[in-house]
């Protein structure tokens, strides 16, 4: 079997089983490295670190990276497609029914509960990310001043990104 098809199948398995986002895929990738030896555990650690410093969803970056390390660009492409196809099929199915029954009272009640939980999960994830990111006083000052700026001054997001990158270099964050 072609390596691309194998990569596609392995990653579609992850795409079907990993519920809860990008970081959930890591144990599956570790399993691939142990079972198939496409990449080593050390390589995986490096991939995770670099993926977090690249724009975009971490899970996508890691999958693309792993596929790339295994079989070049098209290996990465097969991994991404494999990861996406199961979610695509499930979401098409779910969306169709949600649209159909959106105004149904039970669906509305369930979504009400799910929204409250979703905000709670974003909150706890935010705290978790903050703990990992803000590790010294300079970063804490940067955090507080960024927050005040965003909350009261509305500008294009790109201005903020370039500004914070520049400050990061200037203050050696």
């Amino acid at each position: 079997m072609s390596i691309y098809l194998l990569i596609f199948l392995e990653f579609s398995k992850i795409g079907l089983l990993a519920v809860g986002g990008g970081l959930v895929t890591i144990p599956f990738l570790l399993d691939i490295s142990e079972r198939l030896g496409w990449f080593s555990a050390e390589q995986l650690t490096e991939m995770i670190a670099i993926s977090q410093s690249i724009p975009g969803p971490i899970g996508n970056n890691i999958a693309m990276f792993a596929g790339f390390e295994t079989a070049g660009f098209f290996g990465g492409l097969s991994a991404i497609i494999g990861l996406t196809v199961p979610a695509y099929l499930i979401i098409s199915f779910v969306s169709k029914y949600i649209e159909k029954y959106y105004n149904h009272e039970i669906v509305q009640d369930c979504l009400f509960g799910m929204r409250a939980a979703s905000v709670a999960l974003i909150f706890t994830a935010g705290v978790e990310i903050a703990k990992l990111t803000i590790t010294n006083t300079t970063l804490a000052i940067m955090f507080i001043s960024s927050f005040i700026f965003i909350h009261f001054v509305k500008t294009n997001i790109f201005v903020y990104i370039i500004g914070s990158a520049t400050l990061g270099i200037l203050f050696k964050m």
Binding site: M142, S146, F147, I161
Partner: peptide
């Protein structure tokens, strides 16, 4: 590069707090 990325990441955390 790492300093720049760290700066942006801290900004992103502040942005999340604002959104929450």
């Amino acid at each position: 590069v790492q300093h720049a990325i760290n700066g942006v990441k801290v900004f992103m955390v502040a942005l999340i707090l604002h959104t929450i």
